[in-house]
Design a protein around this nucleic acid. Structure first.
Lengths: 147, 147
DNA sequence: TATTGTTATACTCTATAACTATA
DNA sequence: TATAGTTATAGAGTATAACAATA
């Protein structure tokens, strides 16, 4: 008697499938970013600053759901590597921008996120991915979901 | 000049949206399970044993992507609470089953996962959720995605 | 009085390495 | 020789509390 494969109690559980897929995609992204010396969180920060030059740490944290306290070592690390520059806005806030090296690396990070999407979601056109992304976005950004 | 909301560089990034949504769903599930004294991982183990009575720790770990070493305290905790029972299969493997109390609590955990799905994915029928879940499942379980 | 940035710290989850006993 | 279960431990990511300086 060949051992039956175990039954999957979560085959119809969207939340579980979402999590398993997300973990796989994140692991693939982490692998792809490693040669750039970036973790996923570093890359998201670089890309968010690139498209929002002058954004502050607090705004960045709210937008990316990273706590202020955890933004500190993250941004400090990028600044120490000469990728991000800070300019005082008003004595307590500091505007973040990318240095030339930061722009360059952000470009590479962006290319890697594209490659990650292509690897993880083969058979989906860019337009289809955009549509799916919008659907998922609505589920967490709206009041549609849980509180 | 009202402060413009920051631009979202990940609006079209499926992997990022997947992650943000997954985190929200997991947090909601954790909240819902807390009154039962269960974490999400505990609940997945209970439900997997319930549908696969006699499954071993190793099989369980492979199925749920939990490392053997991390299964130990997890299952031990459930056993200590009288929810799970072990029966030697062959000197090195042990068949896991639910006790009566375990069955009862697994039932409540299952009800909570249903409630979690309903809260997080309102407007989706059970059939639609099943279809979506299958689509996501294929992306991580197949060789379709990254290696 | 609320917010920014910061420090220090704790907690959870996950990963690795090594070991014993068994198949 | 490979596998099951175990132990100990390390690491990442995230969370809380408190503080100083500023708005």
């Amino acid at each position: 008697m060949p051992a039956d494969p175990p039954l999957d109690p979560f085959a119809a559980t969207l939340g579980y499938q979402l999590r398993r897929l997300s973990l796989l995609v994140m692991a693939d992204l982490a692998d792809g970013l490693e040669p750039l010396g970036l973790r996923p969180a570093d890359a998201t920060v670089l890309l968010a600053i690139r498209i929002n030059p002058g954004i502050t740490q607090s705004e960045l944290g709210r937008m990316l759901a990273i706590k202020r306290a955890n933004m500190v070592p993250l941004v400090a690390g990028l600044e120490a590597r000469g990728l991000v520059a800070r300019a005082a806005v008003n004595g307590r806030s500091q505007a973040l921008t990318l240095t030339a090296a930061g722009e360059r690396l952000a470009g590479e990070a962006h290319a890697e996120t594209d490659a990650n999407e292509a690897r993880c979601f083969p058979g989906l056109s860019a337009a289809e991915r955009r549509r799916w992304a919008a659907t998922l976005h609505a589920l967490w950004s709206d009041g549609g979901g849980p509180g």
